[in-house]
Amino acid sequence: MSNTTLAEGGNHLAGKYLTFALGSEEYGLEILNVREIVGYQKITKVPKTSREIKGVISFRGHVIPIVDLRERFGMEEKAVDDQTCIIVVEHEHDRRITTTGVIVDQVSEVLDIQIEQIEPPPQFGGAARVDFICGIGKMGGNVKILLDIDNVLSSANTTQWAEAAEEVVQITG
């Protein structure tokens, strides 16, 4: 798929993205999905849940679940430091708008990404899925993986995501 193809059908992808780091990788989240960025705080563990769900916190009078994106993408665990943040996002889950917090290593900046700077997600063979990526932003020499947060936080197979994330970095990096 070429840039032209993406430009024809992917105009909605252009816009502002909040970028953040997970290890050596840079990701982007559409700013309209971001509700707030809060510092890391004590999380109440919820028993009998999957590993990537770290627990719940109180957010503006509501209880919201916290998902560890490193776990979600099958990356190694990292100790919490003063850069660790929780990005509170709004996403669609079972046709309902839901608020969830995602733990990231570090929040970087808000970037205005033009359609010409966005490439379609690479196509992988095998079982690897790329439906959690809506595009790859190329800003100078840097690559930002633009996430489709609805798919990231749906209950699909995380192992496949981990494989896909690794391949994206290998191909684009």
């Binding site: 919820v46 009998k48 719940v56 009078g61 998902v67 839901t98």
Partner: peptide, 19 residues
């Protein structure tokens, strides 16, 4: 009692949360 949201409301043994 606060709802834990769609990601967690099926958790066994937990009916909700309280702030």
């Amino acid at each position: 009692i606060k709802d834990l949201g769609p990601l967690l409301n099926q958790t066994e043994g937990v009916s909700g949360g309280a702030i």
